[in-house]
Every structure is written in C-alpha cells, then in structure tokens.
C-alpha cells in the first residue's frame, strides 16, 4: 500500500473526495515530520511511538576500500511498535 492507496481507501470509507482525503492524510504525516524535526516524541496509542535518537560522531570505514571515514553526529527517527499492532501483525 502506498500513500495514494491509503488516500483512496480513506476517501472511500469517509465519503470525502480524493483531494480532501489527500489533504488530511498529507497533513498527518507532515505534522509528524515537523514534530520529529523539533526532536519531539510522537505517541500513537495502539499503533506505536516515534522517537528521535541522537548518535554521536564516529570514525567508520569505507567497506570497499578500508579507508577510515569520519561520520558526523546525526539524528535518526526510530519507531517502536505498540502492543496492539505488534500482536495483530503476529496474528495474535
């Protein structure tokens, strides 16, 4: 399922036009991206939590050449699945 499939399903279930459903679906993901940009944690009950993890700089290696490469500090999004969804995915 892609975002446009999701929009179509939401449009069908809600009797909204695809355009209108699209603005809602896009707004939800944009809001989540903005929150993560600010380093906020997102808690969606029964779905999961998104957190932003901070990683310090380290010296890695180019696996092809073996040359050391400096990797700067970075922030990465991380998702932890909620209990209900975890069980549903596992068929419980």
């Amino acid at each position: 399922m892609t975002k446009s499939d999701l929009i179509e399903v939401v449009a069908g279930k809600s009797n909204l036009t695809k355009d209108k459903a699209g603005t809602v679906v896009n707004a939800i993901f944009e809001l989540m991206v903005d929150a993560m940009k600010e380093g906020q944690r997102i808690e969606i009950r029964n779905f999961g939590n998104f957190t932003v993890r901070n990683y310090p700089a380290y010296t890695g290696r180019n696996p092809k050449t073996g040359n050391p490469v400096k990797v700067g500090p970075k922030r990465m999004p991380f998702f932890k699945v909620g209990l209900e969804l975890k069980n549903r995915v596992d068929g419980k």
């Binding site: 999701l6 399903v9 939401v10 679906v25 779905f47």
Partner: peptide, 8 residues
C-alpha cells in the same frame, strides 16, 4: 482514527 486504523 481512520487513517491509523487503515494502516493497522
């Protein structure tokens, strides 16, 4: 709610 339910 519907969006997250469809995802689930």
């Amino acid at each position: 709610e519907m969006v997250f339910e469809v995802l689930k």
